[in-house]
């Protein structure tokens, strides 16, 4: 496999939360590592409270109050992490980014680097066309409330692209959208990533979306990476949590098996169990799972899994 140099590399990220007045910090994210490559999309997948959005926020130094990167390294190509230009964010709710009192066009122009502002009208039109608007001039003149949810989301994407980022972080960008609009936005993201050689980090809880557009995925559970690798691993996942997620996903296919949920619930912050975080809900759990944290084991083609029961055999074990 050819592996061009990553534009960003995160290693062993550990993020903690210090509640005001609390004695000890609570771990939020532990031992998470990944690389972002130009022209590729990595999906960070997990249920609410698994730490995926916090991980993404840490890249841009946007951790919420009380949270800090306690250890680990984030290395990036020169300039990428500077001034917010190399790294752009798109969020679930466009209202968080678009200012209701200014016209959309003006807000996009403000996000451009100085070199682009000299011919800002052309650049603005190009950006709006790039995100799929057929009437860029009308959109530029509009106020955010005059656009539908899907149009606002695309306007926000244009604003994110205006800074000519190397990395685009999209945090649940389609969750608030209708399915038909979601499908269009996903295709757009995939196009931008390929044609613009953009590295995309997609944060989502939706495995269907991941299978549709992502190249690689990293599944998180209770702050830890449980399984990662090329997205094709979803056809034969190893981690019982990932298997469970797939069985819980409603499917259209006429031959789809009956839905099966995962018993129990995601543990709250500060109440995460010792050992493997998934063991209280795991159908395969053995006594050792409650005491030792499973560390990622490597398989073929960059596939890694952190599970005592389904670990890949280590090279020393496989060669007698």
């Amino acid at each position: 496999m050819t592996a061009p140099a990553p534009v960003l590399s995160a290693r062993d990220l550990r993020i903690v939360y210090r509640a005001p007045g609390a004695a000890a910090p609570v771990p939020v994210v532990e031992d998470v590592s990944f690389d972002l490559h130009p022209g590729r999309m990595l999906a960070l997948v997990g249920e609410s409270g698994c730490g995926k959005s916090v991980t993404a926020a840490a890249l841009g130094g946007l951790l919420p109050r009380g949270m800090e990167l306690a250890s680990g390294r984030i290395d990036a190509a020169p300039g990428v992490l500077r001034a917010g230009r190399g790294l752009a964010y798109v969020f679930q709710d466009p209202g968080e980014c678009l200012d209701p009192v200014f016209r959309v066009g003006r807000q996009i122009v403000e996000a451009m680097p100085p070199a682009d502002r000299r011919h800002s009208a052309d650049r603005l039109r190009a950006l709006l066309v790039q995100v799929g608007f057929h009437d860029p001039d009308r959109v530029a003149r509009s106020y955010p409330h005059q656009l539908s949810g899907g149009m606002q989301q695309r306007a926000m994407l244009a604003m994110a692209l205006a800074g000519r980022p190397r990395i685009l972080v999209a945090d649940e960008p389609t969750t608030a959208l209708d399915v038909t609009v979601q499908a269009r936005l996903l295709r757009l993201l995939a196009d931008l990533q390929r044609s613009g050689n953009l590295a995309v980090l997609l944060i989502t809880h939706n495995l269907g979306v991941v299978a549709e557009v992502a190249d690689d995925l990293l599944v998180m559970y209770a702050g830890r990476a449980v399984e990662s690798g090329p997205v094709s691993l979803l056809s034969s996942p190893r981690h019982p949590y990932v298997e469970g997620l797939l069985r819980a996903l409603p499917r259209l296919a006429p031959d789809a098996p009956p839905l099966e949920g995962i018993p129990g619930q995601v543990p709250a912050l500060g109440r995460r169990p010792a050992g493997c975080p998934f063991h209280p809900r795991c159908p395969l759990a053995r006594p050792g799972c409650a005491t030792a944290v499973p560390h990622p084991t490597r398989g073929p083609a960059g596939h890694t899994v952190a599970c005592h029961v389904r670990a890949f055999p280590s090279p020393s074990e496989s060669t007698p």
């Binding site: 399915v179 038909t180 979601q182 499908a183 996903l186 939706n206 495995l207 269907g208 979306v209 991941v210 299978a211 549709e212 997205v231 094709s232 979803l234 056809s235 797939l246 996903l249 499917r251 259209l252 296919a253």
Partner: peptide, 18 residues
């Protein structure tokens, strides 16, 4: 039909792409 074709599905996406 449009609605139906917009529903993401893991196995069919994977088999189409890979």
């Amino acid at each position: 039909r449009t609605l139906l074709s917009s529903v993401p599905d893991v196995p069919s996406s994977l088999s189409r792409r890979f």
